[in-house]
């Protein structure tokens, strides 16, 4: 004689199917709640991220921003061969100096042998990969010997850092002399 069971022979299968239906419905409904608002607005990404990306802080400005206040340097810097050099390369980003239009902190000014280091970062002839068309390079200390100055001289003793040839040109004018380098430039 067949034993009596409380459950029908298929009841567990029905229960499983029911569980699947409930979980499936919950998943579909839940997904709509959990999706980021602008997901898929323009493509498979959160559309409002475009706004977030645009709101990234502009920390580095252009030289023009610096010249707004630093007037005399502007005249010198823009007239010389260093006009393409960014102020912020040597002095640091604008945002560390001015916040919301207000002065917040002093930017560093290179001093002493830091200046020489900085000059040679670009003008060092020993790094041969520098195209002549792009930059004038010098070998050290040969350059100092050639120019007949002491080898411990710093670059800015002859070259005004914002316009490297400013003083040299002026000096030549006064002396009525033409220097070797001048012919080339």
């Amino acid at each position: 004689m067949e034993k009596e069971y409380k459950s029908k022979y298929y009841s567990h299968v029905v229960k499983i199917v029911l569980i699947f239906i409930v979980v499936g419905v919950l998943a579909v409904v839940g997904r709509n709640y959990l999706l980021p608002d602008t997901m898929g607005q323009y493509g498979h990404y959160r559309g409002s991220d475009l706004e977030d990306q645009r709101n990234v802080e502009v920390r580095s400005h252009t030289n023009e921003s610096c010249f707004e206040c630093h007037r005399p340097i502007r005249l010198i810097h823009k007239a010389g061969v260093h006009k393409t050099v960014s102020c912020e390369f040597c002095h640091g980003p604008y945002a560390d100096h001015v916040k919301d239009g207000k002065y917040v902190a002093k930017l560093p000014v290179k001093k002493g042998m830091e200046i020489k280091e900085l000059c040679l970062r670009c003008h060092n002839k020993i790094i041969r990969a520098r195209p002549e068309e792009s930059i004038k390079v010098v070998a050290m200390p040969q350059h100092l010997e050639e120019m007949k100055v002491q080898v411990d001289h710093n670059c800015n003793q002859c070259h005004m850092v914002h316009d490297p040839l400013l003083w040299i040109k002026a000096a030549n004018e006064m002396m009525g002399m033409e220097m070797k380098g001048d012919k080339k430039n």
């Binding site: 067949e2 069971y5 409380k6 459950s7 029908k8 022979y9 298929y10 009841s11 567990h12």
Partner: peptide, 9 residues
Amino acid sequence: GSDNVSERA
């Protein structure tokens, strides 16, 4: 939740 282990089940 089922105790049915009949041959059919």
